[in-house]
Structures are given as structure tokens and as C-alpha cells.
Amino acid sequence: MKLKALLPPRPHGESGWVGRVLASGVAVAVLSTARPADSWVWVVLGVSFALFLAGSVLMTARPYVSFALLSVVAVSSALIAGYPQSNALVLVLVAITDVAVLDFRRHGNRPIVAAGIGVAAAYAGSAWLFGQSDSWYFTQLLWTAVLVAFGLNRRQYEVQARQTEQLLEQTRLAQSEHARAATLEERGRIARDLHDVLAHSLGALSVQLEVAEALLEERGDTAGALERVRRSRRLAVQGLTEARNAVAALRSDAVPELPAALAGLAEQHEKDHGTAVQLAVTGHPRKLDSAVTVALLGAAREALTNAAKHAPGQTVGMRLDGVRLSVRNKGVTSGEGFGLTGMRERLALVGGTLTAGPDGDDWLVVAEVE
């Protein structure tokens, strides 16, 4: 869709019809004081005034037709301007002013220059026909030049106003498209997160249930199968929590504040695994984007899951310093799996990084957002 189609047409003259009515009123008032001796002058004045009204009405809808009518008015009135007490100058001035206001776009000011030359020549012919002096001729030219300058200034103002409108509309459209692109990008990111959450949780859940089924069918190990079912339940709860957080971010619902969410995660981990989690929050708290909160929570959950799997019974230390989250547990947890790789990719999408590796006798996971 082109920008011009979105903008309503602007009338020529910021004052619009009010200005045209005032100009017509001034012309009528001045012409009513005219006292030409010959009746044919009244005919010329009357026809010129009628053409002026028609040209003024057509300025917006038919600018070139309006130009032709107004030019005829200006030139014909200038031809009889030297007739004593004709007061035809007023028609020249109002007509030439409207001509100067017209915006000819491709033709620039050439039509206005042509009309001005025609009026100047008509003034010269009128001075010769009716015996006017040189001072009279130059006075008429001066008045005409002043009114042309006024009309050109008016037209320039209108052109700038239209350009400003177009620029504002273009800016609004650009902002709208930018917001739409940002929304689509955010929805796509959350969709990827949701897919990763479900794939990770459901995959682990499927494995646990298969092991439980095998323990029951092949060994009749009810206790072992029950433990696998309990693990499956914990995985389901964790997956549901992650899915809810991702959906909340997608719907722009209120995602929990990161410190409170980490405290809840630590408490749940202690209940599920019987392992202490020491949480420390330092630094200045700040409002985080929901996507950042979800990514850091996912990294903390993955680190706790790995700690429970590879270092069971060991105390876990978790520290949040601004937007830097570290999770430390005793004992080397082994190399990275798909979980930490997925967390690294999610953090990268929100401008963050994730590192994991041995730190002395401990295993340290650090997630940080710029």
C-alpha cells in the first residue's frame, strides 16, 4: 500500500474555504465601489469575477483547470486595470494569489512565471490603452509581486505540512512493522523454548516409565519400579512448571520474580531429593524481561537436575548476583549433556552465556545475561 493512499487529500490554503470566501468578499466590496463610465467594463468585471469563483472552487479537484480560469481572470483584469475607476486590480491580485498557491508538482513554478509574464504584459497594454504613467505601471507590478510572494509562501507552508504528515505516517508505519517483527520474533523464541521444554521433559519421562515397566515385567522389582514412577512424577511436575513459565511469557502474563522463583525451585529440589540447597541473592535487584527470567530459571533447573543425578546427597550452592546465576555442587558432575546445550542456546537468544565445568573439587554452572 502506497503512503499517498493512506493520507487524506489536503485542500489548498491552510485556511481552506474560509480564506476563499474572505478573498471573494474583499473582491465584491472593492468592485462595488467601481464607477466605470462604459458598460462593457462592467461586463468584463462580472465575467472575470464569475471565472474567479469557478477557479477558486476547482483549486483542489482540478488544479490545471483552475489555473487556466484564474490566469484568464488575472490577464483580462490587468488589461482593464488602467481604465479609470474600474477597480479591476483587486481581481488581478486575488486571482494571481490563488495561482501562486497552486502546487503544480512536476512543472514547478513555470506556470506561475507564465501567468506573471502575461499579467505584466497586460499591465503594459492597459497603461498604453488608457494613458497611464510609468509610475502607475510599476505600482501595479509591485502590488502583484507582493501578492505572488504571499501566495508562494503559503504554498511552501502547505507543501511542508504535507511532507510532515507523510513523514509522521511513514514513521508510524515503520514503528508498527518493527513492533510486529519484534512480536513475531518473541513468539518464535518462546515457541522454541516450549518445544525444548516439552521434548526434554517428555523424553526423560518416557525413559523413566520404560525402566519402571521393565523392572516390573522382567524382575518383579516393585520398589525399584515405584522409585522410577516417583521420578517420573517429579519430571512431569518440572516440565509442567517450565511449560507454564514459557506460556506465561508468550501471553505476557506475570512471570514470577527471579529471586522468588529460584527460592521455590530450591525448596522443591530439597523436597524431591532430600538435598540441601543454599540460595544467596546479592547485588541490586532489577526488573528482568520475562524471557530472561525463564531462561535463567531453566538453567538453574537443569543444573539442579544434573547435581541430583551425578552428585546425589551433596549440598548445592546457588547464588544470584544481579543477572549472574551460579550453581555449585560438590563432586565433578561429568561433561555436558543435551540439557546444558539447550540452556546455552536459550540464553544466547536473550543475549546471555552459560558455562559449565569443574572448579577445583566442585562442579560450577554459571549463567549470565548482559
Score class of each variant (00 low, 15 high):
280 A>R: 14
318 M>Q: 00
47 V>F: 00
273 H>R: 07
65 V>R: 08
290 S>R: 12
258 L>W: 03
161 A>N: 05
275 T>K: 10
33 T>M: 15
230 R>Y: 07
201 S>R: 10
95 A>S: 02
123 Y>D: 12
163 Q>Y: 00
358 P>V: 15
350 V>R: 03
91 L>R: 03
230 R>A: 08
47 V>P: 00
61 A>L: 08
161 A>Y: 12
137 Y>P: 10
163 Q>T: 02
184 L>Q: 02
140 Q>N: 09
112 I>R: 12
224 G>D: 13
198 L>V: 15
311 A>D: 02
214 A>P: 09
59 M>L: 05
302 E>Q: 10
261 A>V: 10
68 A>Q: 07
309 K>M: 03
85 Q>R: 14
82 G>H: 00
73 V>A: 10
245 N>C: 09
99 V>S: 03
129 L>A: 14
110 R>V: 07
51 L>T: 00
28 V>E: 08
37 A>T: 07
210 E>G: 14
324 R>N: 00
340 L>M: 02
171 T>D: 02
2 K>R: 14
40 W>P: 08
23 A>Y: 03
286 R>M: 05
259 P>K: 12
81 A>Q: 03
88 A>S: 01
42 W>D: 05
174 A>Y: 13
171 T>G: 02
65 V>G: 12
142 L>K: 15
267 E>Y: 05
193 D>A: 11
179 A>F: 13
93 L>K: 08
143 W>S: 08
320 L>P: 03
203 G>Y: 15
74 A>T: 04
185 E>P: 11
66 S>A: 13
37 A>Y: 01
48 S>F: 09
173 L>Q: 14
112 I>L: 14
177 E>I: 13
205 L>T: 10
315 T>S: 12
61 A>E: 06
241 T>K: 08
334 S>P: 02
190 I>N: 08
93 L>A: 04
367 A>R: 11
276 A>T: 14
10 R>F: 09
121 A>Y: 13
139 T>C: 07
304 L>A: 10
44 V>C: 00
320 L>H: 03
368 E>H: 15
32 S>I: 00
283 G>M: 00
54 A>L: 13
206 S>N: 12
112 I>M: 11
38 D>P: 02
166 Q>Y: 07
339 G>C: 02
52 F>S: 03
248 A>G: 11
158 E>M: 14
103 D>S: 04
164 T>M: 06
299 A>V: 06
162 R>S: 01
318 M>R: 01
305 T>D: 06
118 G>E: 04
83 Y>A: 01
160 Q>D: 06
142 L>W: 15
365 V>A: 15
97 T>A: 11
369 V>L: 09
240 L>R: 09
15 S>T: 07
13 G>M: 04
250 L>C: 09
201 S>D: 12
353 T>L: 04
291 A>T: 04
339 G>K: 01
186 E>H: 14
229 V>F: 15
286 R>N: 02
332 V>E: 08
124 A>E: 01
62 R>S: 07
73 V>H: 12
190 I>S: 04
118 G>V: 07
190 I>E: 06
222 T>N: 03
81 A>W: 01
28 V>I: 13
62 R>K: 11
173 L>R: 15
49 F>N: 13
258 L>I: 03
204 A>K: 06
224 G>C: 08
370 E>D: 06
146 V>H: 11
229 V>M: 13
54 A>G: 03
259 P>R: 14
153 N>F: 00
20 R>Q: 04
189 R>S: 11
232 S>P: 09
221 D>S: 02
211 V>E: 14
